[in-house]
Write a protein that binds this DNA or RNA. Sequence first.
RNA 1: GGUUUCGUGGCCGAGUGGUUAGGCAGCGGUCUGCAAAACCGUGUACAGCGGUUCGAAUCCGCUCGAAACCUCCA
Length: 495
Amino acid sequence: MSNRYEENKLIVFNTLSRKKELFVPLNIPHIGMYVCGPTVYGDAHLGHARAAITFDLIFRYLQHLDYKVRYVRNITDVGHLENDADEGEDKIAQKARLEELEPMEVVQYYTVRYHRNMDQLNVLRPSIEPHASGHIIEQIEMIKKILTAGFAYEINGSVYFDVEKYNRSHHYGILSGRKIEDLISNTRELAGQSEKRNGYDFAIWKRADESHIMRWPSPWSDGFPGWHMECSAMGCKYLGDQFDIHGGGMDLLFPHHESEIAQSTVANGKAPVRYWLHNNMITLNGQKMGKSLGNAMSLDDIFSGNHPLLEKSYSPMTIRFFILQAQYRSTLDFSNEALQAAEKGMKKLFAANETLKQLRIDKNAPSIDVQNIEKACYEAMNDDFNSPMAIASLFEAVRVINSLKANEGSSISPDEFEMLQKLLHYFIFDILGLNSEEGTGDHGLVDGLMQTIIQLRQEARIRKDFTTSDLIRNKLGELHIELKDGKEGTNWQMK
RNA sequence: GGUUUCGUGGCCGAGUGGUUAGGCAGCGGUCUGCAAAACCGUGUACAGCGGUUCGAAUCCGCUCGAAACCUCCA
């Protein structure tokens, strides 16, 4: 049996070349993918959801194409300097002091909450989820290599990456399009950075002062690794010196990923990543949603409807569908109207998937051209994971299904029925990763009860006892159960 | 200021140089006890101004507007 990746030419937009390129893995059928995960010092918000869902979609699709994917997504629990903290205190440590907790207590708390949110969004767990704090040794070893290679210098127990020297033999800016001359004039002089030779040099090891509570011993000082070391070290450890895909949000492009390339390149002698993929931001009134901007909406807020900007609550799957309705490289603008549109559209998609099961099957049924729809779905995904286009094609299938259902005497051939059922299953559940959120309890029991209720209402209607039939419909409506009367009986759906 | 993007019909959002994106909302019709659902039909959208072209929303230039990054950030 052939593998799907042989018949699907996958094209991805590589930030490195700013072009769409044919995706060719280093070691077919294996793929290594590293994605920058969250810094666990606060609750996950919509932006985290977009990054996670984007690369979940990619992970799922690569697997669907029969690739064997090792997906590494880190937990950042150390090393990020607070912007306005002169003493260089990192985010986790600061949060810990504020709440009088152990740093690892903060990490644990928010990691658990992050996982819960991701599970709600039906985001698959990565193959490996390494913590930066668990890889201090690997980071120290890598720093040693960089020092040995001569691309870093030590001052007062801190180690800095020598960007200027690196740029003489390599191109610092290869990913972000920046030129070092521009960096010189644009780097802000922050306090506490005066020990660097150049403003654009970055710390790969930082000496901790007395008050800094997260610290580790190293050959240079008691301190902590620099901002970008963890991804270089962990990516290398689990995926090798060079691997296929590195993902993350566009806001990480510079300096994070640019610096990662520089570090790994000098430590390992080769560029670490073949394809750089970046998801765009979610905006609110045209502005990036971000924790530091104070306009972030936590996922829990959205799921509960507990936020002044929310007209109602939105389910995790609504959020997932909303995000998948935009291509990952476009900004996506948040609004109640857009979310409600997504919610309705998704319900329609699920309903049609159920309706499919009720279609009349007939060997002699005319073709409905399922093959074309299938082709369009795969072509969309093969073109840089264009989920909105794939979804548009699925709605083509929805129209066909509903239209067959609406026209008495219409039927579908067994072959096409099977093909369509498989197609919908693949795309809705396996690739887009949606689930219907229904039947948390005993589905069989609920369905049985509903059939009885529907039958009683039907009998009332036949008696023209519309008082009773409307009462049933209204009471069920209060329970968010919607009855849908059709030519061949009544269906029900959670709304 | 530098780097990188973007500007599509009421809203969200795809898009190949010439053919319907799609969803939601709206309008007309069918169906229905009524409604909902569903189906059928329906929208002269591509910031502005030039240019290239037989033909451009799609290529080029300029203007206007917006965003991200240059500091932690998905």
